[in-house]
């Protein structure tokens, strides 16, 4: 007597395997979709923008004529903006992370701070723009300035830096702290000389990635109301300015098609900055991050 009908089993197995292979192909296609979109996007932008990309593009101000347009004020504005955002957001972010990981007691207050940070990370950037416009531009009287925009951006990326720094600090093994305490070091000495130096590659990697988000962020700048056509470069923290994504937004909105190519040239510069920042972050992660 034959309990197993081998033909039937073979037929069923075959159809199941065929199904498996078809779906595998579909899953692979879905995965490739993202890669293909990225390739098309980069290809389009490079072919569109390379025509306008030249050395002069960096030394000219914005103009009504596409051929004469440049990104001098926008490029410098973005750099200055980062000079505000980097120290402010890292100081606040790392400080908060040290507090939460090293000092905070397990109580309701700490829970509240944690939940608050994760909710803050989900607030749309345009709402941060409204915060900046009301608090920094109007109440603090900073005006439409690098400082006002920089503080707004710092708060926007703060949750990202806090979470990255927390992870880096948590990865420092407890033995290192105990060894330091055993040598007679105080808690703060241990944090400053043992925990932070060990955690700093992780902190830097996370912070640079957060900054690369800030440099491409447009919506808060739009809401704060920074201008797009600016014929001078900013000379102080309180002077008005424009930034790369803002300039790209302005060129994209214009009806003349030639300006779209200028926008593409601006996007090439922005994306190059992003790639440089990301490469630095990856380099630091691979070179200096210790694994325990």
């Amino acid at each position: 007597m034959n309990y197993i009908n081998h033909e039937q089993v073979a037929a069923k197995t075959k159809s199941r395997l065929i199904k498996n292979n078809i779906l595998k192909g579909l899953f692979l296609a879905a995965t490739m979709f993202g890669l293909i979109v990225l390739a098309i996007l980069l290809f389009r932008i490079v072919t569109q923008g390379s025509e306008y990309l030249s050395f002069d593009f960096f030394t000219r101000f914005a103009s009504r004529i596409p051929e004469n347009s440049g990104i001098k004020s926008a490029f410098l504005g973005s750099i200055y903006l980062m000079l505000v955002v980097a120290p402010v957001s890292m100081f606040l972010g790392v400080g908060t992370a040290i507090y939460l990981e090293e000092y905070a007691k397990k109580n309701k207050m700490t829970d509240f701070i944690r939940i608050n940070i994760s909710n803050l990370a989900g607030v749309p950037s345009v709402v941060f723009g409204l915060l900046g416009l009301t608090i920094f531009v109007r109440y603090f009287g900073l005006g439409i300035s690098i400082l006002a925009a920089g503080l707004t951006m710092s708060l926007l990326i703060l949750p990202v830096i806090i979470v990255a720094s927390q992870e880096a600090i948590r990865a420092v093994p407890g033995e290192l702290r105990e060894a330091s305490f055993a040598m007679g070091a105080t808690k703060w000495q241990t944090i400053l000389r043992v925990v932070l130096p060990t955690a700093i590659p992780g902190v830097l990697t996370g912070s640079i990635l957060a900054l690369s988000r800030a440099i491409g962020e447009t919506a808060p700048l739009v809401v704060i109301g920074i201008p797009t056509i600016l014929m001078f470069t900013p000379n102080s923290l309180l002077s008005t300015f424009t930034a790369l994504p803002m300039q790209i937004f302005d060129w994209t909105k214009r009806p003349q098609v030639a300006f779209h190519d200028v926008a593409a040239a601006g996007i090439i510069v922005l994306m190059t900055l992003l790639i440089i920042m990301n490469s630095i972050a990856v380099f630091i992660r691979n070179k200096y991050q210790k694994r325990f």
Binding site: I45, T252, A263, I267
Partner: peptide
Amino acid sequence: GVPTIVYGFFALTF
């Protein structure tokens, strides 16, 4: 990590 303004440009022009 592509900035959303770049995606906007992509939507409008491509």
